[in-house]
Structures are given as C-alpha cells and as structure tokens.
C-alpha cells in the first residue's frame, strides 16, 4: 500500500512548525511562502494543506513538459529542470496545491521529503509536528489508528468515567 500524508484537523493547532521545517529542509531558510505545506486560515481555524499525492493525479496528466511523475513510493514528484512554470498543474489540482516559486520560476510542491525517505526517515513535517496532527502511513494503518483513538478510545474512556461515578 502507498504511504501518504494525512492531516488530523482535530489535532492541528495551527502553529506552522510544519512550514518552518519544510522550508528549512528544502531551501535551508525559514519562509512560509517557500514551504511545500501551507497553513491556511479560515475564520479562526488554521489548517495545513499539502499535496495529497493523488492516485490518478490530474497535475501529472496535464503537465505539458512531463515534469511531474509518480515515483515508486507513490509520491507525485517534480523534476525542476523540466518545469517551465506554466502553472497548469495548479489549475488542474482539485485543491490548488502546487505553488509558483518566484525565485526559480518553477513550481513548488511536496515531494514527501525524498531525501529523508531515501534515508528511511519520515517527512520533516511529520517528524516535527508537535501534536502529531500530520501522520505518514498507508490509509488502512492511519484509519485503523483513528478508529482506535477516536472511536474505541472515546468509548472506553466514557465507560470508565461512568464506572467511576457509579463506584464500580
């Protein structure tokens, strides 16, 4: 199964640490606009948005220079040398994820930290997220975990509380 990034919006506190470590990892600087994961605000909610590495990625299909491809881990990758910065991928993306990088005149998108993956490490945003709101894994694993935490965990805790109140 393909490993991807999943964001738990219940846990995220909008601290932007993912933006900091992403831009540090890829560019060696701290700059939210150069981060591949972007924390966006909607009213008082702040949540990270990033490439979802779609199974049938529209960006890959529309890219006129074949600068985008899917690697062996299922990550949608960008070959910067081939990218002409036409932004068609951003228009095609259902979530508007790819960004334009004014420094290089090419696009900017998440590569699931290719260098870190090669070393057997998880992506930087996952590693550094203080509330573990960003997880890296295959969907079954992640959802199993969520089911345990959100469903069973809540249920068991509630039962225990009831038992305590009843003096059981």
């Amino acid at each position: 199964m393909v490993k991807k990034l999943f964001i738990d919006f219940y846990k995220c506190v909008g601290c932007c640490v993912c933006e900091i470590v992403c831009s540090l990892t890829h560019e060696g600087v701290v700059s939210p606009v150069l981060s591949r994961i972007r924390v966006v605000s909607y009213e008082w909610g702040r949540v990270p948005t990033t490439c979802l590495h779609c199974g049938r990625a529209p960006c890959v299909e529309v890219c006129p220079t074949k600068a985008l491809y899917v690697d062996e881990d299922g990550a949608v990758m960008l070959v910067e040398e081939a990218c002409v910065g036409c932004m068609v991928c951003a228009l095609a993306c259902p979530f508007g994820v790819p960004q334009f990088n004014p420094l290089s005149n090419t696009m900017l998108k998440c590569d699931l930290c290719a260098d870190r993956r090669q070393r057997g490490e998880e992506p930087a945003c996952v590693k550094y997220c203080p509330t573990n709101a960003i997880v890296f894994g295959d969907i079954d694993e992640v959802m199993e975990h969520a089911r345990v935490e959100r469903f069973a965990g809540r249920f068991v805790r509630a039962l225990r509380r009831e038992a305590r109140v009843a003096g059981v």
């Binding site: 470590v21 540090l24 060696g28 600087v29 701290v30 700059s31 590693k127 550094y128 203080p130």
Partner: peptide, 30 residues
C-alpha cells in the same frame, strides 16, 4: 512579508530544533 530568514547552519538548526522540540513537548507545561 513574503521573504525569508536565513540561518547560518540549517542542518545544525534542525538538529537542535528537534532537541528543543522534544524538551517542550515532554514538559509539564505542554
């Protein structure tokens, strides 16, 4: 602002970042 802040040694910064981060999330405050 859409600029950036450049650290002297990004790799070292990330390494210490991780250590500090661990201290913070293990603290009583957290």
């Amino acid at each position: 602002g859409k600029g950036r802040v450049t650290p002297n040694d990004p790799l070292k910064l990330m390494a210490v970042f991780e250590e500090i981060h661990e201290c913070v999330v293990r603290s009583g405050e957290y």
